[in-house]
Design a protein around this nucleic acid. Sequence first.
DNA 1: CTGTTAGCGCATTCAT
DNA 2: ATGAATGCGCTAACAG
Lengths: 337, 337
Amino acid sequence: MSNRITMAEVARQAGVSIMTVSRAVNGKDGISHATRLHILEVIKSLGYRPSGIARSLATQRTLTLGLVVPDITNPFFSEVTRGVEQLAHQHGYHVFLGNTEEDPQRELGLIQSFEEKRVDGLILCSSRLEEDSLLEIIARLPAAVLINRRLTQPEQDAAVDSVIIDETGGAELAVRHLLSRGHTAIGFLAGPPTSFSGRGRLLGYQRAMQSHGIDFHPGWIAPCHPSVEGGQQAAGQLLEAHPELTALFCYNDLVAVGALHASSRVHRAVPHDLAVVGYDDIPLAALVSPSLTTCRSPRLVLGSRAVEVLIQRMQGCPGGCEHQVLPVELIIRHSAP
Amino acid sequence: MSNRITMAEVARQAGVSIMTVSRAVNGKDGISHATRLHILEVIKSLGYRPSGIARSLATQRTLTLGLVVPDITNPFFSEVTRGVEQLAHQHGYHVFLGNTEEDPQRELGLIQSFEEKRVDGLILCSSRLEEDSLLEIIARLPAAVLINRRLTQPEQDAAVDSVIIDETGGAELAVRHLLSRGHTAIGFLAGPPTSFSGRGRLLGYQRAMQSHGIDFHPGWIAPCHPSVEGGQQAAGQLLEAHPELTALFCYNDLVAVGALHASSRVHRAVPHDLAVVGYDDIPLAALVSPSLTTCRSPRLVLGSRAVEVLIQRMQGCPGGCEHQVLPVELIIRHSAP
DNA sequence: CTGTTAGCGCATTCAT
DNA sequence: ATGAATGCGCTAACAG
């Protein structure tokens, strides 16, 4: 390797002991101002950089976090990542990024690797792992936070920190907006029924409809793949089967864009002939035309809040686990004014 | 801390020496099949995980890479990141992600931190640092690769590995496409003149125009901020000042989307009254209407190739530095058929 | 095949 | 205010 300069070398050149150098480097006291200055001088001239590895071995802390996401190119996760990095940096931590490519097997591997890297804390975003594995893993780690997921069993849920979005509340907000504009025949392009957010948003839709005294129409709900193509296809079929629908609430913005495409195909102008509402407010939402009315999920905050919870836990703060639920904001644009 | 299990503990429980455990863990030979199985059994039952920290201190390798990007939420960088993570994973490496938030000062800090973390290699994406600092930093590190940038001075450039996109070639491709469709009055919404890609794309535009024997019109070139707003504003002004323009080549897709907005304002239908070509092929490009004809920059490959170069360098491969130039592909869609 | 001896580079006692 | 001894958990030479 490149013959790195060590503390011993600095100590030799400065004519002091290793311990004194250590004190100077870490800004601790018990050292005269003069020698400190001198040592700092030597350090600079030698280009010495302390070894985080050696330090971590001695202190049993790495000042390192692990972040696991399903797909970093997804704007949702990239913004969560940004939030995580931002706050980690603020607290002097650095972050290992793991991309699972949606593969639970890789997720497991990454978590294990991060454990071997001795991360001080782990953030699992939209974990695809089953509850048992998840719980087992988290128990092994010094600190861990789930983003975008909670465990279903109450006792288990109580044992793990989490930060999530108010999926149901956001969906209610969106549907209520449509209802307030006079729509009653509102379809729902539902996402994956297995996902946490899929279930939450469906529940919100149902609640809002029910609270308005609207009969439940199973036919108005169409599951679809959470993509533009999925949305386009599902919207096309739904509108054909149920021409009475005057509005569509979509699982996410990609699906909504697909709905936009589909409606233009069947010559229903948005928003005049059909109102469309999305979810997430990804950058795309403001750029398509008509621009999307949508629910803004606080992605960056999701990440930064997770780090806060983690750091609190790492500092051994007392109290039980935290379950933060972040509110969602309705952004009204042209697709459903 | 959580009383972690060490190799010594495993050794004790298995009734062997630490060294034998080490051999079993690392799959080295010089150990009987039976004892290996036994040790592995003990390891599993104890839930032992080797300490990467201790291992790194002993071996002087961390199996870790550092990646520094300006903004992880930018689809360009998030895909580069994905490529990096992918290939790193393939080779058993893990990656520290650093987000500079476009701040050179933070970039410097991150690099220094990663050096202290003893990363085996560093990838600098679209570095904003000045050449001297850059060179100095790279000299300190065991291995480093630049993405999206090369140093201007030949001697310096020869001293650092890099992976870049053929900016000029891509721009030529785009403009030639417009020329081949009969356009001659082609405007250029140029990006930041200080950036590597800004200069490269401008050169490509000029070359293509010149090779077609078209007089140089400085007025046809308008610098603009590389965003939708910047593009919209610049396009509006350019089209007003030069109504003779029948096509616009845009610095990137965001600018092109802005141009789309602007042209609809002045009632020039795309592509009929005005052809528009973007650059990068971000996901948005296919989703706006009309969909964008654009140059696809191989972002994922940019990342994965950088890791390959890095690993080659880390293995102490001989030969001088590599300067890979990745080709760009023209994607023809509706904005300029 | 297995165990022993030495570090890796630093921080944490405890002396001086 | 400074230094010496010891250990963090593991691997790399050597011995046996």
